[in-house]
Design a protein around this nucleic acid. Structure first.
Lengths: 201, 201, 201, 201
DNA sequence: GATGAATGAGGGTTCATTCAT
DNA sequence: AATGAATGAACCCTCATTCAT
């Protein structure tokens, strides 16, 4: 689906407007007209680029998760230590949250709804994201760094849950957050990795 | 606000109906009329017991979280080891999820929305729940069982995030879940506690 | 589908309002809100009695055609001469048009649209109406009053076409109509019946 | 309004596309964009040739009715017997319906709507068509072939009504029509003319 | 208290029309 | 002239809430 520069621009403007509006009001309390206004396009223009309101959210996930995953991959480039990868993921996720709070809020808050109510939508990107996590853990096991009793399928969700919840905290607390990205990264990485690597007494 | 037995019954019936309907469709896709039908009361009757639709969700949190917390307290009765308390919390949360999937689904999925969009509602119960977790961790530190560098404010959210995400998995996977409550409890408790207690290399 | 007096009243009020509004603007140029206003009910009330806007038109046909057919049957009561029946039908149709121009206009103008675009709707009443006509003609043939070469299936439509077109003329011309119901009835009845009965030279 | 060959071509293409689309969906359910697509022109191009959507229908009537009338005139060329003219008209109308069902469907189905809702549009062609019919009847009276009590103003509409309704039947029945053009022509011509000419008993 | 018919504000979406290119 | 992306007014319908009974 090739797009002209101008068109791509408008598509992106609507998507960015949607991020802002959804972050502010949540999906269900957001009006399409508000997104249009924020994007400085007419209401009808939105329907040239998106099938309907749901589709905006779906496309938002796909596009933005793609970017997030790409950025993560970039940072993991050349890193071979699985534990170091986990540290980088954790730091990267918090950094992303601090840099794009609106986007992360939408993804964090609305993802659950969508997981459940847009069942037809497979949410491939999210699954890719989760798989990247279990891959790191599996690699750690293979390398003998992580205990053999560790279950990557459970731990990938555990780690995602930690990050999701703490990201939400960061986003909602905003200026009032008591912890820095650095301190949270260290705290979470240390304890999570230790949980996987320390010998069971 | 004293209630007669009959009245209390109707109030509870509406609340239970709401759990079922919200779990099935999510808050925003649920209709008050559907809850009324499920509770076998007239639409208008709901407004004798609840201020509005939002209020149903709020009351649902308050009432049900109260019960959940009470059950947890009960299990913690007489337990003094902070680490054991954490194990019990983890097991209890998973057990609750398996026993009341609808309720846990609503709490898990809708809590985030509400956290953000019903700002007027303080969500005291949720904060009590979180505080119970940080208390356990703090007690562990005081008892010298948990490292001094551990931050209870971060870890309470980390733990809650783990449980929230894995509960959601259990609930959505339903019959297809690959892990049992027991195996998940052990995996999570072992690694989380080890993360807090093992010496930082 | 039993209805209370009050409910039936509201249902009828909406139907009558629809007749008026559709007659004035045509189906597609009529707004549901306008019908509601005319019926002195809220917009939403209409949807308690009708599935959607199309359904109003469908129900209007069913209900009103039923009444029209009933009135015709009443007048045909006790008449055995098939030719006399045809005369009575013609007169009755014109009379109905003069007495209820709005209703006849809607039926006349919108029936064709509906015939084509509401294919799912069988329009049983209309077919009953047509069949009543072919029955008269068939009876006339059986009685030896109408020529044997006459095809009732064609003539029923021919007669309906005549009445439909002349009714439309009456309705649209209104006060300016050049012909009276009586003169039109006589003209049409005389020539149509003669066309069926006179010997082919 | 002189048009180049190319331009005229595009104008006609749009008109033909409109016939097809209107026949399929009816005027109000047809989209200008669909007509444009069918005509293989851009949406905006339509507005270079037509004032608006209504204007397409109006021009369609004018142009096509002109052709229809011209063809009828051609067939009537050299015919002096008024009754024969009526027979020719009847046959010609049915033939036209069989040859151009889409066009006749649009004219038949949409004419009534337009008659009523595009009041500003006088529909001169339709009136010319009707006048041609009354002229035949008047001529028949003058020639002593048709009874003096016959009213051409009423009969022209009666005849048009017959043809309109039976054309609609032909068009809607399509392949399933039970009658041929020839049999319908004979049946209608015989009985209609007999109705005008046979002595009133 | 209980009912459920009635309300009417609100919003997603369509589509005829315009206009910059 | 031709294009087709963009516009935004218009409208059907939903559903939380009310209120007469």
């Amino acid at each position: 689906m090739a797009m002209s520069a101008k068109t791509k621009d408008k598509y992106q403007r609507i998507l960015d407007a949607a991020v802002k509006v959804f972050a502010q009001n949540g999906f269900y309390n957001s009006k399409v007209a508000e997104i249009a206004k924020e994007a400085k396009v007419a209401d009808g223009t939105i329907y040239l680029y998106f099938k309907n309101k749901d589709d905006i959210l779906i496309k938002l996930f796909e596009e933005k998760m793609n970017v997030i995953i790409a950025k993560l991959q970039e940072k993991l480039e050349g890193v071979s230590d699985p534990l170091e990868k986990i540290r980088i993921y954790i730091h990267s996720h918090f950094e992303m949250t601090a840099a794009h709070p609106d986007l992360m809020e939408v993804i964090t808050v609305e993802l659950r709804q969508s997981t459940k109510f847009m069942k037809e939508y497979d949410n491939k990107q999210f699954n890719r994201y989760l798989r990247a996590l279990s891959d790191m853990i599996r690699d750690g096991k293979d390398a003998g760094l992580i205990r053999q009793d560790i279950n990557p399928g459970i731990q990938k969700r555990a780690l995602f849950g930690i990050m999701d919840e703490l990201s939400l905290y960061l986003v909602l607390a905003g200026e009032n957050a008591k912890y820095t990205v650095e301190s949270m990264s260290k705290e979470v990485a240390d304890s999570f990795i230790l949980g996987l690597t320390a010998p069971l007494s």
